[in-house]
């Protein structure tokens, strides 16, 4: 049993040290502002501690954090879009994007369900089966999302190139 209960020093350090990097990058698949991604991940950690809970195991904990981060990042993005807030992409559009920016922009332009699968596979190295467990999806669905996400990324990057 993995516990996130009580917000102990040990728990706080473990959560932040173990998951920060992955969750920040994951949030960045939906948010063009790294500051927004940081806010979203902080809220997920806060929410987890305030709920005072425990998980079956480390995988269960990780899956919860991944899903919660994706939801929070989506919420941030929807709010920004609803208010027509300028996105970082727009600010950068005045200068030709370098390769990294072009790829990040393309990932963010993917439908959300594709972006998460693509990131978890190509950056974190998870298999379709593992991603299915993390996202609560059948492995076949993950495979479809990966395939379609890959195709769309290729199209977008070819246009940019």
């Amino acid at each position: 049993m993995v516990s996130a209960h009580n917000g102990t020093e040990e728990t706080i350090c473990r959560l932040v040290e173990t998951y920060s990097d992955m969750l920040l990058r994951l949030a960045a698949t939906r948010l063009s502002s790294t500051a927004d991604a940081e806010d979203a991940v902080q809220e997920v950690f806060l929410y987890l501690l305030e709920r005072g809970t425990s998980f079956r195991d480390a995988e269960h904990e990780k899956a919860w954090l991944i899903r919660a981060t994706l939801h929070r990042a989506s919420d941030f993005r929807k709010r920004a879009e609803a208010r027509n807030l300028p996105l970082e992409d727009a600010a950068l559009s005045a200068t030709p994007p370098d390769d990294a920016q072009a790829l990040l922009g393309a990932v963010r332009a993917l439908p959300e369900k594709y972006g998460a699968a693509v990131y978890l596979h190509y950056y974190e190295g998870y298999t379709m089966k593992e991603i299915g467990k993390l996202l609560g999806l059948p492995a076949a669905t993950v495979g479809t999302r990966l395939k379609r996400g890959r195709e769309r990324l290729k199209q977008m990057l070819e246009v940019n190139d």
Binding site: G7, I12, S20, E38, Q42, F45, A100, Y119
Partner: peptide, 26 residues
């Protein structure tokens, strides 16, 4: 793909800020 995500620049003090925030809230 990895290079693009590794190029993301997050606040260097994110972890310390977050840990402090969580401690405060706890």
């Amino acid at each position: 793909f990895k290079k693009a995500f590794d190029a993301l620049s997050f606040s260097p003090d994110f972890r310390s800020r977050t840990e402090a925030l969580l401690r405060e809230r706890a």
